[in-house]
Write a protein that binds this DNA or RNA. Sequence first.
DNA 1: CGGTTTTGACCAGCGC
DNA 2: GCGCTGGTCAAAACCG
Length: 297
Amino acid sequence: MDDAGDGDGSSPADSGNAAASPGLLPLFIRSSPVEDLEEKLRRVTEENRRLTGALDAILAGHHHAVGAAPSPQSATTKASSVSTSCAARDDATAAVASTHPAAPTLAAEARPKVRTVRVRADACDNDAINMAEIVKDGYQWRKYGQKVTRDNPYPRAYFRCAFSPSCPVKKKVQRSAEDRSILVATYEGEHNHTMLTQTTKFIDNGCMSHHVGSSLPCSISINSSGRTFTLDMTNQGSGSSIEAVSGQLVMVSPESRRLLVDEVVQMLKNDTEFVEALTNAVATRVEDKSTRPDMLI
DNA sequence: CGGTTTTGACCAGCGC
DNA sequence: GCGCTGGTCAAAACCG
């Protein structure tokens, strides 16, 4: 609660851009001791500068990272294509903060079974189960531990894949120390089973992924030929957020949101497999309704 | 009542 | 060898 204020007045759109924009700092100066604030500002500024450099390096090799996606769930989370390269460290925060200060080339190629995903989430949502739900990836997870780590005041939650006892995949979820509205999820290992779960239907045709899950009813992510779009139209907060990763992070005036929506719609229209899947789904619904007139579409 | 989550305890790895 | 830290275990609590 020491950083009260980040999250109350700021929009969801601008709260998560600290990693991309040096000028956007999640600090709101109030009547605290000036030295503390200056020190905090200095730290965050330095952190932002590092992250900006790291982001440039990552984006320079972005296509390599996309081509070498280590596990099937590459799309649910926002900005996943930005952060999947952070593979060298088991500490999620360290993975973000130390995004290859010495190695601009992607360490993910060396350890492809570990990847990190950053997800923007409601900063007020603190409990670990919701954290796991927010970092929705098509699998079900069972929490087996929680720990407060040294360099992050927020607890880290440990999850195992609950789909199969033999599945070796583990997942760690922790809020970013720099921006509490960012959840950092670290995946280790690869699933040895299919992705379908009870709560999520996941269509993955290799370049596009669409989630129609109960907990994330209007979430769609598209990763097509190196571009990533995320529509997150869950009803958290006051409005929808749309994020695009296309060589750089772009955010997010209402006009640009509209443009992005148009672009995403166009992409969906042009994707024959999506159209086919949608058509089949509608046909199935219509068929069901014809046999069960009481059923809502 | 069975499955899941919580949380303190324990263990292993690493740096000094 | 010792202390610190991250990761895991397992008993208790919780929940549907």
